[in-house]
Design a protein around this nucleic acid. Sequence first.
DNA 1: GTCCAGGGCCTAC
DNA 2: GTAGGCCATGGA
Length: 230
Amino acid sequence: MTMRPATSEMKNLLEEIYSRLLNEFGHRNWWPGETRDEVIIGAILTQNVSWQNVEKAISYLKRSGLLTLEAIHRTDTAEIASLIKPTRFYNMKARKLRNFSDWLFITYGGDLDLMFQCHTGKLRQEMLAIGGLGEETVDSILLYAGNRKVFVVDAYTARIFSRLGIAGKKWRYADYQEFFIKHLDDDIALYNDYHAQIVRLGIQYCKKTTPECEKCPLNSICEFPLVPTR
DNA sequence: GTCCAGGGCCTAC
DNA sequence: GTAGGCCATGGA
């Protein structure tokens, strides 16, 4: 069993990683979206699909005047589904969008300000209970629409930090989250941009089966090129 | 044609 | 508890 670095060393390593990503990509200014409604809708639509496809669906919703949770709340799922086809699983996602908006109107009268007045932990549990929204989606909504200090974990996070040799093989969502909370500065802006940088790196350099390690800004501190696990 | 993308849920073992 | 199937488009 390999020993992971002590806490202070790990903090330095996470700082080094962030520094390299920031230098490579610049501030990401996340989440892409002009309104909180759009951020929430995008968070649901991006489940297991590239953002490129989501942008297309968002533009269709906007063109039809359905890029608000209020509009989605009063629109038939079949009509929503027809507009979000590029995001795959469109029938499921249309139901998820309605689930969320219906819950918002029933519970908070459709008022996001009122909803975001809730305690973060309570709100997280409530959203997880809606159905169709898992931890990543809920945490994305909390961080990027609600400005809550919640670290978002996704497939890229797991892949990149496994390949770096930092994450344990059996780490689950909560393990990753705990790790970042423990080792990152207590700063919402950092939580915001760190996750965004991870996604940016993943898209370009850390693909599932065809990573491009040679040009990756983390190559010199990554175990993966030396010990491929494929 | 093949691969896979910023998940989540359900079922079977 | 966990692997595997389902959902079912579009770009490289």
